[in-house]
Design a protein around this nucleic acid. Structure first.
Length: 823
RNA sequence: GCCGGAGUGGCGGAACUGGCAGACGCAGGGGACUUAAAAUCCCCAGCCCCGCAAGGGGAGUGAGGGUUCAAAUCCCUCCUCCGGCACCA
């Protein structure tokens, strides 16, 4: 009846029809057209073949896309390419192939894959971020941020590989060694461009409360990442230098317990503190060694606390006592003020440090009587002691009073600080958006005028992997006249972090060819924000946070009127599979457990693979791939096809309507529509497939029954193929056509159901005796309590549990259950 | 350590708002078709006990306790696994 070649021919046929008829195309520029914006995270065009672990997002999104279209919604679902990035550049270094060449080839290959999967996008809105038409607007946004003081240049410590002579992203320096050459990573101070995302810290935090259609998990992760802390700034004067060291503390109440002041090795005062020290050379060497340590290793909680006394003391802002000034490795340079007050009595880290170096420990918060006296360092609240005027006051109250007192003395005051750091966008890389700045000896950093955008990435650059950024060696790019004075200038060769590209691409999709502006605000007003965003949890923090920041900036430029880019977010779970080692792990090429997609599709067809991937399990959870499991969905699709073909070969008219709209078989049909619809609405694709399988069994049985009514048979099959479309689009279209359909199912409308018919007429009521199931009684759905009790007692297997006992209570749940409680 | 999430048959998983645990599949067993196999179709099937059988009974959703007529679902304590963050003053 059917074979794989035939399946593939059918799939190819419909892929061509969808493409030719441009069924996914939306005219976003037409003010009369409205709809739903469905977005899937744009992929990086990698050279590796995609495996089934990757495909889940796209199948999921496509099923939803088709479902919404069938329900009559005008869905905008675009696709594009996150085309800049390190892998292409590394490939150029290894193979000598230009990043642009490999990237464009990868894009073409992936596009071909998407086509073969039968996923539907509005390709007329395609965006490729490595094209000047796109990245010129990255540059434009950068200039706007510069004007607003949101793009700034400042020093930062970065991961540096001395062998590759390049900076590394944190994830490329994991474990303290370079991902590529395995040599130890050091830290370097470099002048870098930053975007001041911290200016929006409060807004980004508060905005999370309104994102009710985001997973709670992601919102929590972002909250922790932003890390708002309420406390106080306090000033300690170092009299010998005439300088003030400001510290931030979340526990101003413990200020009377301070026994040391500790600075990060990066603290600006450190050079002066060490300048006159008798052991200066050794101390400076120590500071250098700490600073060059890998940040991840240094900031790990398990790292040994290491410090040095500077020989200086600072004056306590409240007691006036002399407090020793130390430098220590565990004080983080870019959090707070890079300095802290050590309260060893009430902070475990300070306790560890002060114990190690023999510094005094003072108790200033009396723990409540209920607290465990064995705990050496009480970090909770309590009553103040040894704190002068604050003795006897509850610690929380004392904290506020002390912050206020500090403010009155001009020595600090209440303060809110964030863990969130500014976004470092400079990359010493070729394959990215050039930062549109020119350095002039006379005028310093001067922005490239808007009219001169885009600053084009020069096509030829030497990819040696040595000597840092290839752009540094492209003379024609480097040399540029200062836009201000016309004198000789040197172009910035750093390029932008690729997260810039993905921070606003979803708005560009709406108006991708606009040459005058990043997008037309009136189009954005109609279509943005995105109604439903789908992607991996791995982007829970950075990408989503940066995009939320960008949209706030874009709003401040008056181009959009909303704050949040993504109204609803869905994160699909990973697909796992047993590795050669026997462990169940995330599917990936490097773990050796990937199932490649293209051969599987070539063998089973895209529909079967789609149906199986959707059937695997709840889409938001991780789920295990089983190589044999695909047989189930395959048989299911085969059965659907066989049933339709069998029906047609009998010569029956597929367009007929049922003779009896309320017949038992019609009820089965209405029930199926109700269940499948509800499952799709709930993103429960796996149960939708399960319901479809059940319905297909019913359809096969009905059509195989010569006595069954032909109109109902036809209606059942028409319904089945329509409901099947989001799961198996090719087969459903083909069957729909053979059943007399004249246009795509995408245009035909979703089957309706009559609620009054979408229930079985009779119900098998569960009958319990004292909570234990003792039997079932089949009655009408709307049977009452008395009727059910009578029927239950008439049933011998049930009644023998009741006779001779006293009935103390009867619980009746309409349409479901009866519980006779006896004693 | 902190913050999320999860633990249900041999396996993936289902179960509305507390109301018949195991839907739908995989793997398994039996049968039909076939010279045979594959494919396909039909039937059986979570576990333990009693019974030749029809059938009957029991325990059971990570462990222990609780609330309730009724708990996978709610509450308490604990264990395990996965993900994220991790010296943030």
């Amino acid at each position: 009846m059917s074979n794989y070649e035939d399946n593939l021919a059918i799939e190819k046929k419909w892929q061509e029809i969808w493409e030719r008829e441009q069924l996914a195309r939306v005219d976003t520029s037409d003010p009369a057209v409205k709809g739903t914006y469905l977005l899937v995270m744009l992929p990086y065009p990698s050279g590796d073949r995609l495996h089934v672990g990757h495909a889940r997002t796209y199948f999921l999104t496509d099923a939803l896309h088709r479902f919404l279209r069938q329900r009559g919604q005008n869905v905008f679902c675009p696709m594009g390419w996150d085309a800049f990035g390190l892998p292409a550049e590394n490939y150029a270094i290894q193979k000598g192939i230009h990043p642009r060449t490999s990237t464009l080839a990868n894009i073409a290959a992936m596009k071909e894959q998407f086509r073969a999967w039968g996923v539907l996008y509005d390709w007329s809105k395609e965006v490729t971020t490595c094209e000047p038409e796109y990245y010129r607007w990255n540059q434009w946004f950068f200039l706007k941020m510069l004007e607003k003081g949101l793009a700034v240049r400042k020093k930062a410590s970065v991961n540096w590989c001395p062998s590759c002579e390049t900076v590394l992203a944190n994830e490329q320096a994991e474990g303290g060694t370079c991902e590529r050459c395995k040599s130890p990573v050091t830290q370097r101070e470099l002048e870098q461009w930053f975007l001041k995302i911290t200016d929006y810290a409060d807004s980004l935090l508060e905005g999370l409360d309104g994102l009710e259609k985001w997973p709670e998990k992601v919102r929590t992760m972002q909250r922790n990442w932003i890390g708002r802390s309420v406390g106080a700034d306090l000033d300690f004067v170092v009299p010998a230098l005439g300088e003030t060291v400001r510290v931030f503390t979340t526990r101003p109440d413990t200020v009377f317990g301070v026994t040391a002041l500790i600075l990060a090795p990066e603290h600006p005062l450190v050079p002066r503190l060490l300048a006159g020290h008798p052991d200066r050379a050794a101390l400076e060497a120590w500071v250098r060694s700490v600073r060059s340590q890998d940040r991840i290793a240094r900031e790990s909680e398990t790292a040994e606390k290491d410090g040095r006394f500077t020989g200086f003391t600072a004056r306590h802002p409240f007691t006036g006592a002399e407090v020793p000034v130390w430098i220590a490795n565990f004080v983080i340079a870019d959090y707070g003020t890079a300095a802290l007050m050590a309260v060893p009595g009430h902070d475990t880290r300070d306790h560890e440090f002060c114990t190690k170096y023999g510094l005094p420990i003072v108790e200033v918060v009396k723990r409540p009587a209920s607290a465990d006296p064995a705990i050496a360092c009480w970090t909770g609240e309590g009553t103040m002691v040894n704190s002068g005027p604050y003795d006897g006051v509850p610690s929380a109250e004392a904290g506020e009073a002390i912050a206020l007192a500090a403010e009155e003395k001009g020595l600090g005051g209440a303060k809110v600080r964030f863990r969130l750091r500014d976004w470092l966008i400079s990359r010493q890389r070729y394959w990215g958006t050039p930062i549109p700045m020119i350095h002039c000896e006379k005028d310093g950093w001067v922005p490239v005028p808007e009219k001169d955008l885009p600053v084009i990435l020069p096509p030829d650059a030497p990819f040696t992997g040595k000597g840092g950024n290839p752009l540094d060696k492209v003379e024609s790019f480097l040399r540029a006249a200062c836009p201000r004075c016309g004198g000789p200038g040197r172009r910035e060769t750093d390029t932008m972090d690729t997260f810039v590209d993905s921070s606003w691409y979803f708005i560009r999709y709406l108006d991708p060819k606009n040459a005058d502006r990043p997008f037309d605000p009136s189009i954005a007003a109609r279509w943005a924000p995105v109604n439903q965003y789908i992607g991996g949890i791995e982007h829970a923090i950075l990408h989503l946070l940066y995009a939320r920041f960008f949209v706030r900036v874009i709003k401040s430029l008056g181009l959009v009127s909303f704050d949040e880019p993504f109204a609803a977010l869905f994160n699909q779970g990973m697909i796992t599979r047993r590795s050669p080692g026997g462990r169940v792990e995330k599917m990936s090429k490097s773990r050796g457990n990937a199932v490649s997609l293209d051969p599987l599709i070539a063998e089973k067809g895209a529909d079967a693979v789609r149906a199986y991937v959707l059937f695997l399990g709840p889409p938001e959870k991780e789920t295990e791939w089983n190589d044999d499991g695909i047989a189930g969905p395959e048989r299911f699709l085969y059965r659907v096809r066989g049933t339709v073909e069998g029906f047609l070969s009998s010569g029956a008219d597929p367009r007929r309507d049922p003779a009896d709209p309320a017949a038992a078989a019609a009820r089965r049909r209405h029930i199926a529509v109700r269940k499948v619809t509800a499952a799709f609405e709930a993103f429960s694709f796996h149960t939708a497939v399960a319901h479809l399988m059940e319905f297909s069994r019913h359809a096969a049985e009905l059509c195989g029954d010569p006595g069954a009514e032909a109109g109902e048979k036809a209606a059942t099959l028409r319904t089945l193929v329509a409901l099947l479309h989001p799961v198996a689009p090719h087969l459903s279209e083909e069957m729909h056509q053979r059943l007399g359909g004249t246009r795509s199912l995408l245009l035909e409308g979703w089957p309706a159901f009559d609620p009054s018919l979408a229930e079985e007429e009779t119900v098998a009521f569960a009958v319990q005796v004292s909570g234990k199931l003792r039997g079932q009684v089949v009655l009408r759905r709307d049977a009452g309590e008395e009727e059910l009790v009578r029927a239950a007692l008439a049933d011998e297997t049930i009644s023998r549990w009741v006779t001779g006992k006293e009935r103390v209570k009867t619980v009746f749940v309409p349409g479901r259950l009866l519980n006779l409680v006896v004693r």
